[in-house]
């Protein structure tokens, strides 16, 4: 068993309402100095040893991310 992590983020130019809501809430809660926030999704997959990185990329591209508006990164842990 190997552990693979997939991070999915909205593409930089795409509007991120969730991140904006967090960024606007921070000063209200007394946290200063944060210029911008982008929110994303973090997936942890436990996969058999014979599952290739390419296969995980396919999983990410098909299901975990929406490639029209999101980018993803795959890394082994």
């Amino acid at each position: 068993m190997a552990r693979v992590v997939v991070d999915v983020m909205l593409k930089p130019e795409i509007l991120d309402p969730q991140g904006q809501a967090i960024a606007q809430a921070l000063p209200r809660l007394g946290f200063g100095g944060v210029a911008d926030v982008r929110a994303g999704k973090h997936f942890v997959l436990d996969v058999d040893d014979d599952v290739s990185e390419q296969a995980v990329r396919e999983i990410a591209d098909t299901l975990l991310a929406n490639p029209v508006i999101e980018d993803f990164e795959v890394r082994a842990e």
């Binding site: 930089p12 130019e13 795409i14 509007l15 991120d16």
Partner: peptide, 11 residues
């Protein structure tokens, strides 16, 4: 960015 998406995201 190499290619800007033409998809708008609403809020």
């Amino acid at each position: 960015p190499a290619k800007r998406p033409s998809v708008q995201v609403g809020d």
